[in-house]
Computed example of a mutant assay.
Amino acid sequence: MNVNMKAFVLLVLGIGLLHIASAVTHSLRYFYTGTTGIPDFPEFVDVGVVNGKVISYYDSITKRKVPKQSWMEENLNQQYWNEGTDQLKGTEQSFKANIQIAQTRFNQTGGVHVFQNMYGCEWDDESGATEGFYQFGYDGEDFLAFDLKTTKWIAPTPQAVITKHKWDSNTADNEYKKNYFTQECIDWLKKYVDYGKSTLMRTVHPSVSLFQKTPSSPVTCRATGFYPSDVMVSWQKDGQDHHEDVEYGETLPNDDGTFQKSSHLTVTPEDRKNSKYQCLVQVKGIKEDFIGVLPGPDAPNFVPIIGGVVALLVIVAVVVGVVIWKKKSKKGFVPASTSDTSSENSGRAAQMT
Rank of each mutant, 00 (worst) to 15 (best):
E43Q: 13
S217Y: 03
S22N: 13
E126N: 13
Q78D: 14
K330Y: 07
L18K: 11
T157C: 10
Q135F: 10
S217D: 11
G140L: 07
G16M: 07
I305K: 14
P158I: 06
S346D: 12
W123F: 11
F44V: 05
D46I: 15
H165R: 15
K328W: 04
V219S: 00
G257Y: 08
G257S: 09
Q236R: 15
V233D: 04
S343I: 13
L294I: 01
L17Q: 09
Y180L: 01
S217K: 07
K261L: 07
G321L: 08
F44E: 00
H205A: 15
K327R: 15
V267G: 04
G111F: 05
D230A: 15
V323P: 04
T214E: 04
V323T: 12
T35P: 00
V3K: 13
V161H: 04
E270F: 00
Y192V: 05
V283F: 02
G308I: 08
A129E: 15
G140A: 09
T25C: 11
M201A: 12
F106C: 03
V322R: 01
C185T: 05
T109N: 13
I324E: 01
V281W: 00
K166E: 10
L88S: 00
W81R: 01
G292I: 04
E74Q: 13
L76F: 11
V309G: 14
D256S: 06
Q183I: 14
A317E: 06
N82V: 12
M232C: 14
Q100V: 09
D298E: 12
A97K: 12
W81P: 04
E73L: 11
Y195M: 08
F31C: 15
T163K: 01
W235M: 06
T109G: 09
R202Q: 15
G132Q: 05
D230N: 15
P206N: 08
W123Y: 13
I324A: 10
F41E: 02
T199Y: 11
V193W: 02
S346C: 11
V309H: 13
A172D: 14
Y277V: 02
I99N: 03
H26S: 09
N174S: 07
P42C: 04
F106K: 04
Q351D: 10
A299M: 09
Q100P: 01
G132S: 11
Y227E: 05
L280S: 09
K152H: 06
C221N: 06
M1K: 14
K191C: 04
N117G: 07
A311R: 10
Y138Q: 01
I186Q: 05
T182K: 08
K164A: 01
F302R: 15
I61Q: 10
V204K: 08
L294P: 04
Y176T: 07
W81M: 02
